[in-house]
Design a protein around this nucleic acid. Structure first.
Length: 571
RNA sequence: AACCCCGUAGUGUAAUGGUAACACCAGGGAUUUUGAUUCCCUUAUUCCAGGUUCGAGUCCUGGCGGGGUUGCCA
C-alpha cells in the first residue's frame, strides 16, 4: 500500500456550490446543462470556456449535456455556421449524444404557450412601431408609459395574434408583448416583446413561420422543454433573469411546464489579452480581410486555434485552469500558450529545422586530420528525449550544413553560449564545431562560417566543457519548406483601448505573420498534414492540413518555446 | 443618472464567522547534448470607513472603484 495522502478535493467553483445546494435542498435531483449557440458566427475560445463548463458540469454530476441551436432569428443565421459549430464542439470533446436540439423544434409549443398567456391576460398585441416603442419605454431613470393597446380584450388579442401568424401584417407592424410593468426599474420588464413579424424563411422551418420569438421568450422555454436544470449563461443576462423567471412562473401557474423549472446562473465571460472576442469584431476582421478567414491561425476562433496547431486537450486544460467566477477579468494570453506548450512538450516528437539559414562548412577534424568526402558521421537523434520509447532517427552529418543565423554573433556578449569567432558549440547529436573563420560578402554581411569538427560530443580536446548546443541540418540532404511564424494579432494588450479617433484595427500587430522558407531535416518531408512537432529550440509546429501537399509540408508555428535567452538578450 | 452584479499578491483563483492560501508571472539557484523540460528557494495580497461578534476577506450600513442594462440582437 502506498502512503500517499489522498489529494484534496478540487476547490469547487460558485456554480458547483450552488448546484450542490440545489441537490441538497431537493430543488433538483440531477444535473442537465446545455450549450446554446446562435448559428450566426464561428465559435471562439470564449465559447470554449462555456462548452467546457457546461459539459464538464454534466460529467462531474453524472448528468446530461445538450447542444441547442438558438435559431430564433433567421435573418442572421446560416447552415454554414451550424455545421462548423457542431464540428468545433465535437472537436473540443463535448458529447451531446443524441440530444442535438434546436429552438426551432419548439416553435409550435412556444406559440401555444403564448396563446395561453394571452388568454390569461399576460400578453397583448401591440401596434407600436419600433421607434414608438423606444420612445414609450422610458429611460433608466424614468418609467415608461403604457402602450395604447395594452388594454385590448383577450378576444381581440387572440384574433390579432392568429392573424399575425397567418401573415396578414408586414414586418414590424405588430408585436406580441408580455404585460408586466412599464414602471419597473428593470427595463427588461417593461412589457418586453415576445414575438416580432419577419417574413424571412428559416433555415430549418422554411416558410412555416413569419413570426419569430425574441430571445427572452424562447430561451427559458427551450430550457424547460429539454428538462435543463441549470441554465448557465454570461453576466450580461443577469438583468434578464427576472424575466426568465417571470415567463416560467406564468407558465407554471398555467400548469404547462413539462419539466421542473430550470435555474439561470451567470458567470463572467472570458477576455484574453492581445485579442478581441466580440462576434462583431471577429466578423469585421474576416470581412475586411485583415485576416485570411475564420480559420486564420491568428484568430481566437476554435477554427483558428485548430489551424494554429492547438490541441483540444490544451484548450480544456486552459479552461479548467482559469476558473469560473462572476468577476470580470482578462486572462493573460500566456496561460493559453502555456497550456499548449505543456501538452505538446509531452506529446510532440522532436525534429530539427533552421528558420533563417546560415551556411557552415566543416573543414577538418579538430586534430587536423582530413574529413571524409561524404558522410562524416551518422547521428542518432531521439524523437523525444524524455520518452526514449518513442525511438530515434538518423541524420547524416556532412561538410556543408545550415545553422540558425541567430546562433552566431560576431561580437557576442559574455553570456552568449552559441557560436562566435574562435568559439565552440555543440551541434546537437553530432559533435563540437569550432568557428575558425568568418566569411563575409562585399557588403560586410556574414555569409559562411568555416569550422573544425570534433565528433566527441562532451568536451573540447583541452577538456573544457562546451556550454551551448545548437540545431543544424545537412545542406545536401534537407528540404525547403514554407513555415509561417505567427504572433499576437494585436500589438496592444487591450486592443479596444484605442487612441482618440482610432479603432481596434489600428492596434493590429503588423508582425503577426512572417513567412519564411526554412531548411528542414529530411525526415520532415514525410510529415503528414495535421502532425505536430517540436522544432528543437524553436517551438511547436503544425503541418498545415490545407496547404501541405505530398512531400512538401507547410508548417504553422503554434507557439514558441519559452526563451530565457531572449529575455536576457532583451535587457 | 436608476437598477443589477463584482472588488483577495503583478495576473487568475481558494478560504462558506476561527492561523489568508494555491497556480502562473517575476527574481534567485540546481540539473540538462533543446538557454526547453524538470527540481528547489524568494518577494508580495483581503478597496476605504463605520458597525455586529470573543473573533470579519466572509455578515450589516455608507462610501469609492470596475462592469452590465435604455434592440422588434442573442
Amino acid at each position: 500500500m502506498s502512503t500517499e495522502e489522498t489529494p484534496p478535493a478540487a476547490a469547487k467553483n460558485f456554480i458547483e456550490q450552488q448546484i450542490d445546494a440545489d441537490l441538497a435542498a431537493g430543488r433538483a435531483d440531477h444535473v442537465h446543462t446545455r450549450f446554446p449557440p446562435e448559428p450566426n458566427g464561428y465559435l471562439h475560445i470564449g465559447h470554449a470556456k462555456s462548452i467546457c463548463l457546461n459539459s464538464g458540469l454534466a460529467r462531474t454530476y453524472g448528468g446530461k449535456f445538450n447542444l441547442r441551436f438558438d435559431d430564433t432569428n433567421p435573418a442572421k443565421e446560416e447552415q454554414e455556421y451550424v455545421d462548423a459549430i457542431m464540428d468545433d464542439v465535437r472537436w473540443l470533446g463535448a458529447d451531446w449524444q443524441d440530444r442535438l436540439c434546436h429552438a426551432s423544434d419548439y416553435f409550435e409549443t412556444y406559440y401555444e404557450w403564448a396563446v395561453a398567456l394571452v388568454k390569461a391576460g399576460h400578453a397583448y398585441v401591440c401596434d407600436l412601431t419600433a421607434d414608438e416603442m423606444r420612445e414609450t419605454r422610458g429611460t433608466l431613470t424614468e418609467p415608461g408609459t403604457p402602450s395604447p393597446h395594452r388594454g385590448r380584450s383577450v378576444e381581440e388579442n387572440l384574433d390579432l395574434f392568429a392573424r399575425m401568424r397567418a401573415g396578414e401584417f408586414p414586418d414590424g407592424a405588430k408585436t406580441l408583448r408580455a404585460k408586466i410593468d412599464m414602471a419597473s426599474p428593470n427595463v427588461n420588464l417593461r412589457d418586453p416583446v415576445m414575438y416580432r413579424i419577419k417574413h424571412v424563411p428559416h433555415q430549418r422551418t422554411g416558410d412555416a413561420w413569419c413570426l419569430y420569438a425574441a430571445y427572452d421568450w424562447a430561451h427559458g422555454q427551450g430550457d424547460v422543454m429539454e428538462g435543463i436544470t441549470h441554465s448557465i449563461c454570461t453576466l450580461e443576462f443577469e438583468n434578464h433573469r427576472p424575466l426568465y423567471d417571470w415567463y416560467l412562473t406564468r407558465l407554471d401557474e398555467l400548469k404547462l411546464l413539462p419539466h421542473p423549472r430550470p435555474r439561470q446562473i451567470e458567470f463572467a465571460r472570458l477576455n484574453l489579452t492581445y485579442t478581441v472576442m466580440s462576434k462583431r469584431k471577429l466578423l469585421q476582421l474576416v470581412q475586411e480581410k485583415h485576416v485570411d478567414g475564420w480559420d486564420d491561425p491568428r484568430m481566437p476562433t476554435i477554427r483558428g486555434l485548430r489551424r494554429r496547431g492547438y490541441t483540444s486537450e490544451a484548450i480544456r486544460a486552459f479552461c479548467e485552469r482559469i476558473g469560473v467566477t462572476k468577476q470580470n477579468s482578462t486572462i493573460d494570453m500566456l496561460w493559453l500558450e502555456d497550456a499548449v506548450r505543456e501538452h505538446l512538450n509531452e506529446t510532440a516528437e522532436r525534429r530539427m529545422a533552421v528558420l533563417r539559414p546560415l551556411k557552415v562548412t566543416l573543414t577538418a577534424f579538430a586534430d587536423g586530420s582530413e574529413l571524409p568526402e561524404g558522410v562524416i558521421k551518422v547521428c542518432q537523434l531521439d524523437n523525444h528525449p524524455q520518452h526514449p520509447e518513442q525511438g530515434s532517427r538518423e541524420i547524416e552529418l556532412t561538410r556543408d550544413l545550415w545553422i540558425e543565423a541567430d546562433d552566431f554573433m560576431e561580437e557576442a556578449p559574455k553570456k552568449f553560449f552559441r557560436l562566435k569567432p574562435g568559439g565552440a558549440v555543440r551541434l546537437r547529436g553530432a559533435g563540437i564545431a569550432k568557428c575558425e573563420e568568418v566569411i563575409k560578402n562585399a557588403a560586410g554581411e556574414v555569409t559562411e562560417l568555416r569550422c573544425t569538427f570534433d565528433p566527441d560530443t562532451t568536451a573540447l580536446a583541452d577538456g573544457k566543457k562546451v556550454k551551448g548546443t545548437i540545431h543544424w541540418v545537412p545542406a545536401a540532404d534537407c528540404i525547403d519548406a514554407e513555415v509561417r511564424l505567427y504572433d499576437h494579432l494585436f500589438a496592444k494588450e487591450d486592443p479596444d483601448k484605442a487612441e482618440e479617433g482610432k479603432t481596434f484595427l489600428d492596434n493590429m500587430n503588423p508582425a503577426s505573420l512572417e513567412i519564411v522558407v526554412a531548411k528542414l531535416e529530411p525526415e520532415l518531408a514525410d510529415a503528414e498534414p495535421g502532425e505536430r512537432y517540436q522544432f528543437e529550440r524553436l517551438g511547436y509546429f503544425f503541418a498545415d492540413p490545407i496547404d501541405s501537399v505530398d512531400e512538401a509540408p507547410v508548417f504553422n508555428r503554434t507557439v514558441t518555446l519559452r526563451d530565457a535567452w531572449g529575455k536576457e538578450a532583451a535587457k
